[in-house]
Nucleic acid binder design. Structure first.
Lengths: 238, 238
DNA sequence: TTGGGAGTTTGTTCCAGAGCAAATTGCGAT
DNA sequence: ATCGCAATTTGCTCTGGAACAAACTCCCAA
């Protein structure tokens, strides 16, 4: 795949990769070196599972570049996206929450670069690295909060508001300024958006068409640009 | 309030209170003594807030007896129950997830007995007490899983299935055997159930009436008995 | 350059369940 | 006892958005 102009070149594997990331930010260069030497690094294509729900949690991961969706598959085969994870976060820390299988599937939403470590290192990371535990649990807490918000949203808001909210969250996390507005920095389909908002791709399509007519957004296939974030905020309120 | 026959007498404040609870189970009697001496204990009536969303997180809590609902209030004033917390769990551990305000409101679903400690003790609890951190985070992880499940449910299931699921969860957590089946061990209204399942009390009422006719449940005001849990499981599937 | 598949749009139908309204039942307080 | 309120039940109407169907558009690969 050729790098699109908006995609950062994939970083090389050196200390500077981790030093600015919260879970490692308090560590010395020497410690980071050790951590990197224990890591495997791997590039994933878009739409590939990094790990799958219910499988034994053998490794934990750090997403260096790209985006990941955390999904669950229902008995009837539909898949629901619970969370979007931006680069710089840990992933699959089953151990942190006392599990030995992954609680959900992690699927790349764009081409991604990922480090991973065998799970048996988890305890020593927690023990040896200052701030690692704190930051990890902060992350878990944030995710709990986000999922919590999803529940509220789905319980109380209409589809249009939910889509607006989802879009706002996406441009916050992964927005990139372009001349006509803010573009979502990775390929996203109507289908993806419908899984995020618990509706159908048809409805999402209609909603977006409507907004496009009113000049709120602009979209080509797999790509959405928000022209008027403020209008979206209004829409998201009800 | 007069103790109903099914309510355990409220426990006295001695070591045995905590020794069997996971976050403290690995501690010595001496340590538990210290912990108890630092605690305040308080009884709450039904339907009272223990702490409120967005307020400064000054204390953390252990629910010794009773049940607590974790709720959020929406801009339009509706309240949504995200979680039910049974006795024996910690509550309001904002610190654990790196926050200094409570992320949600905790409201008693029945008369409850609660211990609490000032939040500044949190770090020392984590540091000094073996297993406390692990168990805490296991709890946070479980809650993340539960909320996650709620999202899936709300996204993919019909109201009847959701109500069936909610009822099943409730009897698992707090069921009490009676001669006609399993009764939910605390007062619960149609309204409560509708907040749990993101529907209206009207619809819940209709659903329950239907089930009552078919002999699946039996209910008086604020009290529900499941006569045929198996039928409920079938209903919950779809 | 052309065919095919993935992604998208749009039209139409239909129904679960929300909203509104009103009656009924039971419990607790005086 | 009985009044008053809270909880529940039930009927009726109305609508958001799902479900089904079909056409269209873009992109890529041969």
């Amino acid at each position: 795949m050729v790098d699109a102009p908006h995609r950062k070149t994939l970083p090389r594997l050196d200390e500077s990769l981790l030093t600015h990331l919260p879970p490692f930010s308090r560590l010395e260069k020497r410690q980071i070196r050790v951590i990197l030497d224990q890591a495997s690094s791997r590039r994933y294509d878009e739409g590939v599972a990094i790990f799958e729900e219910a499988h034994p949690a053998e490794r934990f991961y750090m997403l260096l570049d790209g985006y990941v969706r955390v999904i669950r598959i229902t008995p009837n085969g539909e898949q629901i996206t619970a969370l979007h994870i931006p680069a710089g976060q840990l992933l699959g820390m089953a151990r942190a929450i006392g599990r030995d299988t992954y609680p959900a599937t992690a699927m790349t939403a764009s081409e991604s670069l990922v480090l991973s470590w065998p799970m048996h290192l988890w305890d020593s990371f927690i023990r040896d690295y200052d701030g690692f535990a704190t930051e990890t649990y902060k992350t878990v807490g944030q995710r709990l909060g986000e999922v919590h918000n999803r529940v509220i949203e789905m319980a109380t808001q209409q589809v249009e508001q939910r889509v607006a909210n989802a879009l706002l969250r996406l441009i916050n996390q992964t927005g990139r300024k372009v001349e006509t507005g803010i573009e979502i920095d990775f390929p996203i389909t109507r289908q993806d958006l419908s899984e995020l908002t618990a509706t159908t791709l048809h409805t999402v399509s209609r909603v977006l068409s409507g907004w496009e007519k009113r000049g709120v957004v602009e979209s080509k296939r797999k790509r959405i640009t928000v022209r008027d974030p403020h209008a979206l905020m209004v829409l998201s309120q009800g």
